[in-house]
Design a protein around this nucleic acid. Structure first.
Lengths: 419, 419
DNA sequence: AATAGTTTGTCGATCCAGTGAACGAATTCG
DNA sequence: CGAATTCGTTCACTGGATCGACAAACTATT
């Protein structure tokens, strides 16, 4: 499970107490990421380490180009002013890729979480088979790496988000109904098309969206969250005590294909009446639009069509509002299970739910309340995601960088990097 | 969240590298608990520490009376035979208490997980109000402590299992429908009746059962499990990567009162059609028995009545089998959510489900399979618990001991303990 | 302007604790 | 009985965290 990337990579031979230093470096780096820049003294207080240790660790982080020392500025309070230590993420990039029905995209983030590269290629339905997607992925990786090199940065790792069942351990997609994929070795395929080798991992898109929401979303920092997301399909991503829930085989969060109504509509997975057929985007279309309404045109990207529907709702179109209310009801009934089971601090509506959230949330809450024993939804806030359709990519890029925060000793010392 | 019990309690003043030693002591103690006794050399291999360190840590554990050194016995293989190091749990006890509709009980375990104290008092319905239960609890604690003292052991902590919504942080029961409790400060109440002070914590009974299943059940060691359990009510306990899932406010696993059918039967929580009304013990009775059938007598303990029903099923009584099949169907539909969301390695049927499991599992599997995207239930085994009705108490006792495994430095050195 | 009071960062002494190497002890195998 | 093997211990070493002390850099006060 643990990827032995960092440990002794740039180690100075052997250490007497392995891990200790790396842990502390990672802890401080993490503090600098979540809480803004701080002085060494404050970092010592926050981390529980002594001031001497913090100074030494900060030096080491600086020698690796991971932090920059700011200027010492007096702020009016008595005492010697502290020198601000800030995360400097410019040197390391992580890349997240994603594939949807109509597009292939990628987002790279640097260590500080700043987007440094973004590309989205429209892929009209039916243009590409899976091979085409793989070469597009590889091209994206090479482009991102070129951009990184140009900025003097290094691309560390790639995470691919796939809407479907993913075997992360082997980098395989078991099945992705909405893409028509089955038993596809995505990690190997992408690796094979790369100019230079690079670690490639694969994960479920909803899971990666949850990572993004936890790191960058409106409820960032909330330790326990559930994210409902989807483009055509519907999936859940769950973060428990700050950690992504993966499950025994990595299939956690696959709620889209719970069969609710055995007599329901056909689902892309081959079954009938899955939750997805009731709350997925196609369900919205089914009731919100008729005939050859342009929003039903499968050739148009879902993101565009969702905006259209949101606009109609905003204009007060009753058919649309009724359809969204109905979806909200079914959404709430399912969400009640999730909230009862996890008692999350927040339930985030991402993907295509996000733009429609204002018209869903009321019905959801009404359905959830009588299904939850604890008052006030057990402290769970239901919120709209602000991350847009690239959440999965951002989450992937974030995960691609996590090894650095786990143990920054793997980052090579940039000779002459400090100052 | 973290209870600062151990850290510097019996510390030797201040340590240069706090935590390090305690971590390693805890790790080795944990290894000795899960994998049987081993020689120092094997422990070194398993833990990744050096032989020298293991020897030193074992010495320290021995000086605290936590391990015993076995005899050096040749096993036929070449080389000097190793001296076995075994967990010696006799000196420390943890106590788990539980309350049901008809009884109050307690189980104490020593560090090695051996039951060392057990008592169950029948409390005919209507005999006690909550005050009575609190004094019974306190009496149990005092009795357990007396027994411990007699054996030369020390009782460390008490965990109370309550079927309901529990605010563990404050030791409060928010609501326990089947007991009629509401806003009750159980921890304080029990503490107040004790002869000598002792840490008392409170948790949900299903959650504690999950702890027990993970530690002592048939699927012990499986990192991700879901436990469905209940006496009158129904609850879930979830273990994720070896850790109990608690949720943002500690309400995780409260699946009993998800409203499935708004027009369903009345529930003890005041709502209608909760899952509990469809799969709880009362649901079994509703269809399996009529009129003044003795199994419907609320004055008889549920455990007894369940055995009666299991016997009828074993004898092939069709009414009973039909009733159980129906419950299995509803159980499977709900379980599908749990399995999709968590992708656990095992789903355990505990509490009153356990004796009936053979007659439920088939229907459950049949309902779950079409609701789970991954083939073969995503690797999830559906198994019958072997722990009986005292699972929650055992889980509580187990948790009550966990602080020792987290950091054994808190245990005082028994002068002259090491032979 | 000088001084006192605060807070910050660094230096040095100290010390805990883990490591590798070497060695004696205890066994099996030839 | 000696060689091979494995186990536990001893020892010197070292990484890395801690504390105390102190200079530096600021504000507040007289």
């Amino acid at each position: 499970m643990v990827t032995p990337t960092t440990a002794q990579a740039a180690g100075t031979g052997r250490s007497a107490q392995p891990g200790r230093r790396g842990e502390n470096m990672g802890m401080l780096l993490g503090l600098l990421r979540t809480e803004g820049p701080w002085s060494r003294a404050r970092l010592a207080e926050m981390s529980g380490l002594s001031r001497a240790t913090v100074a030494s660790v900060v030096d080491e982080l600086a020698s690796r180009g991971l932090v920059v020392l700011g200027d010492r500025r007096a702020d009016g309070s008595p005492g010697r002013p502290g020198q601000s230590v800030a995360l400097d993420g410019r040197g390391l990039w992580g890349l997240g890729l994603e594939v949807g029905g109509h597009h292939v995209g990628g987002v790279a983030l640097d260590l500080s979480g700043r987007p440094v590269f973004e590309r989205h290629d429209a892929v009209p339905e039916g243009t590409d088979d899976w091979r085409g997607v793989m070469t597009r992925f590889a091209a994206l990786v090479d482009a991102a790496r070129a951009a990184a090199t140009e900025e003097g940065a290094r691309l560390l790792e790639v995470q691919v988000a796939v809407p479907g069942l993913v075997d992360s351990a082997h980098g395989m997609v078991v099945t992705a109904p909405n893409l028509g994929w089955q038993g596809l070795a995505v990690a190997d395929e992408v690796s094979g098309h790369l100019g230079e080798p690079l670690p490639v991992r694969v994960a479920n898109d909803a899971n990666l969206s949850a990572v993004a929401e936890h790191a960058y979303g409106t409820v960032a920092g909330t330790p326990d969250i559930v994210v409902l997301t989807g483009e055509l399909g519907v999936g859940a991503g769950i973060v428990v005590e700050g950690q992504l829930l993966r499950g025994a085989e990595g299939y956690a969060g696959e709620v889209g294909h719970v069969q609710i109504d055995p007599a329901g509509r056909d689902c892309s997975c081959g079954r009938r009446g899955c939750w997805e057929t009731m709350v997925g985007f196609r369900a919205v279309l089914h009731t919100a639009a008729v005939g050859d309404d342009p929003v039903r045109d499968p050739a148009v990207d879902v993101a565009v069509r969702v905006e259209d529907i949101a606009r109609r709702a905003a204009e007060g179109d009753t058919r649309t509002l009724h359809a969204l209310h109905a979806v909200g009801v079914d959404l709430g009934r399912g969400a009640a299970w999730l909230v009862n089971v996890f008692n999350p601090g927040a339930l985030v509506l991402g993907g295509f739910f996000a733009p429609l959230a204002p018209y869903l949330i009321e019905a959801m809450r009404a359905e959830m309340a009588p299904r939850i024993l604890a008052t006030g939804l057990g402290g769970c806030r239901v919120v709209q995601s602000s991350l847009g359709f690239t959440a999965a990519s951002r989450g992937g890029a974030h995960l691609a960088l996590s090894s650095v925060f786990a143990d920054p000793t793997g980052v090579e010392v940039t000779t002459g990097g400090a100052r």
